[in-house]
Design a binder for these strands. Structure first.
Lengths: 251, 251
DNA sequence: CTTTCAGTTTGATCCACATCAAAACACAAA
DNA sequence: TTTGTGTTTTGATGTGGATCAAACTGAAAG
């Protein structure tokens, strides 16, 4: 009994499958790393991206401190990134969905700066960083797009700094819902109805609020006819109203 | 009288000087973009970095919305980066000192995301982005280092998210002082005595606090024998005490 | 010199959100 | 079915930092 248990523990951490990536037929192509490349270039990319890794809900794709050697494209599923502070306090620094790139924080110091935790069963394409470097020397479009992705991550984070630094609770939560809505829409999902993959506590951690405050804001928005919430299901009923909350500093 | 006034307004915005950069003899070399390159490689870099631009105190290096075409290395002086929100609220998102790179936020969308404002008379080396792209295809070390710089900016910002999201006022301010101290030390300045280039309000904006709170924390730290503050001059008297404040959640 | 002004300090008061507490709920395991 | 566990909601109370207000400082301008 001890042996299978041990084996399970080792295996559930990561399930590797040698799979040829099929960027050319992937419907996330235009959101993902190879956005805007030609068909020949896509072939080269595919040769680089050859490992599809499955991460089950609750498991980590990587952890802070681990050696960095690859970035990951989310193929399906949903992740949170979490930084843990020396004294145990932690903060969610981002949520990642299909087509988004994870792990760029590790390039600077050669080791990851945060944990990436799957919030549902997920699959990622693994992109070895040294190959990415080589290839982006050959393919201008790849280099440029990779730079753009890193730069957008910088801009995204300064947007979060704005949330945390100057907005009040309800503004932050409206902004959060609108951001999710917009990203889901870009992936062909309904921007008005969706399931939250994270808990109230994780939302709160991301927004610098306590879970009770998140819950109260949801209730308030419901009362005001802006949204319907039932557990993790959200329906936006008045998107303009939500936008006004976070655009006009309305109370 | 009207004419000189107009001319002054136009000129004070930016003073361009065609100067050969001298990365090879620059004492910021190891902190800056060309860190770790060979002498031959440095020659190539120098050919790329050929404009030294002076920005006077209070002027902007670039503004949000302007077309992005270059990143900048701070040669001397001090900058703040500032994001202004639609309704006029703004936040300082970072401070940059000699050897640091500014403007990487513009790559993603082709236009700058924030204003870069000089807090004292400053000089920057201008690095045209298309040249940087080309050259980093040829020089592996340059590509790698540029990626590291972008990645470190991502990590820096997630550190600020941590400040804003989970730390209390005095912790934020201790962390801020220690960060300044460490960066000045890396540049050969005293880590224990320095001049703040920014106002209490700018510190507060960066840390998500009001200027009064910053002032009170300084006073408290002074009372506790941790620092001496006189206007913009700071002397750290008990660096371990400061570290404990932000490492242990002490009140 | 005086005046002006931006920046800073300090005190008094307020309030948005945290904290504490308890109940309701969902869902899985026994 | 019960039991347990994690999540969410809601209410009551507390508090850290914001806000309001006033005085002070130093530097620059007249």
């Amino acid at each position: 009994m001890a042996q299978p248990e041990l084996a399970r523990q080792q295996n559930t951490q990561l399930v590797l499958a040698e799979l040829k990536a099929a960027c050319a037929t992937c419907n996330l192509r235009e959101l993902c790393l190879p956005a805007g490349l030609s068909n020949e270039e896509l072939d080269q990319i595919e040769a680089m991206v050859n490992i599809c890794r499955k991460i089950r809900r609750g498991e980590t794709l990587y952890r802070a401190g681990e050696v960095f050697d690859a970035v990951y494209a989310v193929r399906s599923g949903f992740f949170k990134s979490r930084v843990t502070y020396e004294d145990g306090r932690d903060q969610v620094t981002g949520f990642s969905m299909a087509g988004e790139i994870l792990g760029m924080d590790g390039i600077g110091q050669g080791s990851h700066n945060c944990d990436a935790v799957a919030l549902e069963d997920s699959e990622v394409c693994s992109i070895p960083y040294t190959r990415l470097e080589e290839l982006s020397r050959e393919i201008d479009g790849l280099q440029r797009h990779f730079h753009k992705l890193m730069s957008r991550e910088i801009v995204r984070e300064s947007g979060v700094m704005m949330l945390l630094g100057v907005m009040r609770a309800e503004e932050r939560i409206a902004a959060f819902l609108l951001n999710l809505s917009q990203r889901l829409n870009a992936r062909g999902y309904s921007p008005l109805e969706f399931h939250l993959r994270m808990t109230r506590e994780e939302i709160g951690s991301y927004l610098g609020l306590k879970l009770e405050t998140v819950s109260r804001a949801f209730s308030k928005f419901h009362k005001d006819g802006l949204i319907e919430v039932e557990q993790k299901f959200v329906r936006i009923r008045n998107i303009e109203g939500l936008k006004q909350i976070y655009a006009h500093h309305v109370n």
